[in-house]
Design a protein around this nucleic acid. Structure first.
Lengths: 340, 340
DNA sequence: AATAATAGAGCAAGCGTTTTCTCAATTTAA
DNA sequence: TTAAATTGAGAAAACGCTTGCTCTATTATT
């Protein structure tokens, strides 16, 4: 392994000089710098991460904390983070919490102890006040896919109200009057926001969604199984509706499958719209119309923000951290304007 | 931040002793050990990763190199790795190569430079000889989802021949006589092995697959689009078949979608079987019958193997590194025994 | 031309561990 | 009972890098 000292020796300068050339801190003469750079290249020197981390108590690493990378949504977050990390030659350290708040806190601690202040966290299991406190302490902590008012500038999220609204508007434009919602935890912010948006659109159209047509989950995780379950409930309890707005694509697809298994046709009998725009939308039959969530972009921006925060680069700081979702039309919603 | 020295001071012993207590190396008296442990607990001391890494030139980290974590297959690998890592309190560092061999080599270099010898690599873009060479140099390198004879004990893979065989046997048992194969790169080992297994089953049944019913990809990545493309080709060129064996689930689902878009019914007109058993199998219509690939288990075992290799723990070394796939029956294959 | 300011580069301490040598104290063997 | 072996614990060097301090050489100021 070639060390800084080796380079210094060969270049005929002191280690400090080499260090300054590598890091770009401190003054080095033009000629000297070029010479050292040449030697570095020639010897293929690469600085030792740990020595550097130890000496300056920070590390060029960004830590991602996510419930489970193997799900498409979180996998996309990971990609966004890595894309941004690569650009600055940072490494990506991933910890899966499997929804355990202790695991998440532990991961944060562990990152900090390693001198890693750049932490991107995607969690719903740590409460707002804890996160606010942590954000105060950790310069580079940014929260992704979640809005927490006191630390809004440290969050990157999408406009869920708007997302809900455009989904509902689309359904209404297709002639649907009796909408139903299958969603996630009643107390969670995202479901609430999306419902809010839906209600706005519905009211603007002079319609109304009775509470009984909004089905929540309890401690659910918005997955396929959950979608199936609520869809079954919808049918069994004979709720009156022509279209369902699912909290996300997973639930939507679960619901579609359940409807189909029960003998209903989608979209002929029931229209369904999802949220997120995961790759499975193109796979399901019918292809799922949904609200596009720019996940990779959000994660990428979050990472850039974190880096800017710790490195004092003001470039992205202050930019709006809210992204806008958008409608993507496929085949799971039927236009029933003329036949009903 | 509380350091080893702080603990030593408070405990009234030398730093060396504390170090020995923490690491478990070297002799420490029973009484002394307990006292130090108590102080450690009381002060909530946690060793500094970087200092440790620097001092002993190794690090408790396992590096995963994968084309792209956001795909379900690779996401599952990540989970398997992390599961094994957590058990030994190792961290997981992930690098996505996006199929670039340079990125993969770079990642390996980078891991090594950081003193990380535990590398799990999933790649098809680095050739055998390079990998063999690397494996010789890096004690903890293990290759996942790939078999390379000279370093078989450093690979963890599944029996693709067997997988191909049971898929074909199942189709044949369902009365299919005209099978067709849509697969990946002709030169790649996995496709070849699966085809081999298929041919074995076919021949055992006294049947035959003409070469024109085996469609390969060129530089393809076995994804949905690729499946669609070959399915289209199958139809357009009017090949004669009743069932298709896809290289993997993604391709199978692409094919199903294409068939359906072209007006064919699956499985009524065409039966399809996949490979991998990703979650999307439960999502597609019809649900995809497939060959189960125990991905998480494979990745977990690979990680344990890597750790055993570097830590001299002989537990898992020598165990068979080949896993067996298994059939999972869903609804994409029709029994045509009695009506044809 | 004399003085002040600044640029360039080296020295050495320090980051938090591990680990090799010591050496004293204790145990074991003869 | 004595010599030999073993155990327990400390001192100090090393890991590779950063950075505050220092000193000389150069440039700018008057």
């Amino acid at each position: 392994m070639v060390t800084l000292k080796d380079v210094a020796l060969k270049a005929g300068v002191s280690p400090s000089t080499v260090s300054r050339v590598v890091s770009g801190n401190g003054r080095v003469g033009q000629k000297c710098r070029e010479h050292v750079q040449a030697v570095i290249k020639q010897m293929n020197y690469r600085p030792n991460t740990h020595a550097r981390a130890l000496a300056c108590n920070r590390v060029e690493m960004i830590g991602l904390i996510t419930p489970n990378v193997s799900t498409p949504f979180n996998g996309s977050i990971a990609i966004g983070v890595e894309e941004a990390a690569i650009e600055l030659d940072y490494k990506t350290l991933i910890t899966n919490t499997f929804r355990s708040p202790e695991a998440a806190i532990n991961a944060i601690e562990s990152f900090r102890e390693q001198g890693c202040e750049n932490i991107i966290i995607h969690t719903h299991s740590i409460d707002d006040v804890t996160l606010v406190k942590l954000a105060k302490e950790i310069k580079g902590l940014v929260v992704v896919n979640r809005f927490i008012a006191p630390i809004a500038q440290r969050c990157v999220w999408i406009d869920n109200v708007y997302g809900g609204r455009i989904a509902a508007e689309y359904l209404i434009a297709q002639g649907h009057k009796k909408l139903t919602i299958i969603t996630d935890d009643k107390t969670a912010r995202d479901p609430k926001d999306r419902i809010l948006g839906i209600k706005q659109a519905v009211e603007d159209a002079g319609l109304h969604i009775p509470e009984e047509r909004i089905l929540f989950g309890i401690n659910s995780i918005g997955n396929i199984e959950h979608g199936r379950k609520l869809a079954r409930q919808l049918i069994e309890e004979k709720r009156d509706f022509t279209a369902v707005l699912a909290y996300n694509d997973m639930m939507a697809i679960g619901a579609i499958n359940e409807f189909q298994d029960m003998g209903y046709k989608v979209p002929e009998d029931i229209s369904v719209i999802g949220f997120d725009d995961l790759f499975i939308c193109e796979v399901s039959r019918p292809h799922l119309s949904t609200i596009h969530y720019p996940i990779v972009e959000v994660a990428k921006f979050a990472t850039q923000l974190s880096l800017a925060l710790t490195n004092g680069d003001e470039g992205v700081i202050g930019k709006a951290n809210m992204f806008m979702p958008s409608l993507v039309e496929r085949s799971s919603v039927k236009n029933i304007k003329n036949n009903k």
